[in-house]
């Protein structure tokens, strides 16, 4: 791969987060560089999902700061992070069950649609034009993910693997600069995993999207990521290129200890 990894675009400094007595994250600092794929790994309950939630403002850490594109803050609202170019998928599929694939993906365009309610009620002129423009963006995403045939199907009726794909589509429709993927391949068979890996690499390659992903399958992680950060009990125990991390004794211990 000949891509060039840029400067640090997202920097998390000394993040600590607890829920009541449970300390989910302790003093974690992670940098993410532009155009890279960073994998976060670690045993269950290590705080990986919490870390993503801190980055896009779902959780607000008690200590530490997040610097995104030069702006430093303790916390932002989730919709602010969406507006500033961060999109994500969830560990447990969080699609809009009653809506079609297309409508789910169209919601990804929400922050970019400008026409007000009155125009929408008329559905005419500029409002219609806007709807068509954004439809075109979504159709490109649908093409890319090869889900043309389920465009109009309510997502609740789709098999699990396809739902995961639609959820990726919804995030991609926002044309994000930073894409957070929480276990995008969990529960998939080998073939589905291969497809998903290809999509992730293609997104990164074609659009230069920076990606932070959480994944348990070490084979996949070593294959697709530029860098790996390892969390254990809310602490970061390692951070480096895949080969470095694989041979790190502390990582091996954490994984053996957790029964992996």
């Amino acid at each position: 791969m000949t891509k060039t990894i840029g400067d640090v675009i997202l920097r998390c400094d000394n993040i600590s987060l607890s829920f009541g007595g449970v300390r989910a994250l302790s003093d974690i600092s992670i940098d993410v560089r532009e155009h890279e794929i960073l994998a976060i790994i670690g045993p269950n309950g290590a705080g990986k999902s919490s870390m993503l939630n801190v980055i896009n403002g779902v959780y607000h850490p008690q200590e530490g700061t997040v610097t995104w594109k030069g702006q430093t803050r303790r916390a932002m609202k989730p919709h602010e992070s969406a507006e500033s170019g961060i999109a994500r998928t969830f560990q447990n599929i969080a699609l809009f069950k009653g809506m079609s694939t297309l409508d789910n993906i169209m919601t990804g365009r929400y922050t970019k649609m400008r026409r007000n309610l009155l125009w929408q009620a008329l559905y005419w002129g500029p409002a219609r034009k806007e709807e068509i423009e954004h439809r075109e963006v979504c159709e490109r995403v649908i093409d890319f993910l090869q889900i043309e045939s389920i465009r109009k199907t309510p997502v609740g009726r789709l098999p699990y693997g396809l739902q995961k794909r639609v959820e990726l589509g919804r995030a991609l429709a926002a044309q994000p600069e930073l894409l957070l993927l929480d276990e995008p391949m969990a529960g998939m068979n080998v073939e589905e995993k291969e497809d998903m890996c290809r999509f992730i690499l293609d997104v990164n390659d074609e659009f230069g999207t920076t990606i932070v992903l959480i994944e348990h399958d070490m084979g996949v992680v070593m294959d697709i990521s530029d860098r790996v950060a390892v969390l254990d009990y809310g602490r970061k125990i390692a951070d480096g290129v895949p080969d470095q991390v694989r041979t790190n004794p502390e990582v091996i211990r954490a994984y053996l200890g957790a029964g992996h």
């Binding site: 896009n56 779902v58 609202k77 989730p78 919709h79 992070s81 969406a82 507006e83 999109a87 994500r88 969830f90 969080a94 699609l95 809009f96 069950k97 009653g98 809506m99 409508d103 919601t107 990804g108 929400y110 922050t111 919804r170 926002a174």
Partner: peptide
């Protein structure tokens, strides 16, 4: 509909 079906993802998408 997004808010109806899953308010947390709605918010994360920017709604």
């Amino acid at each position: 509909m997004a808010v109806r079906d899953k308010d947390i993802s709605a918010e994360v998408i920017g709604i």
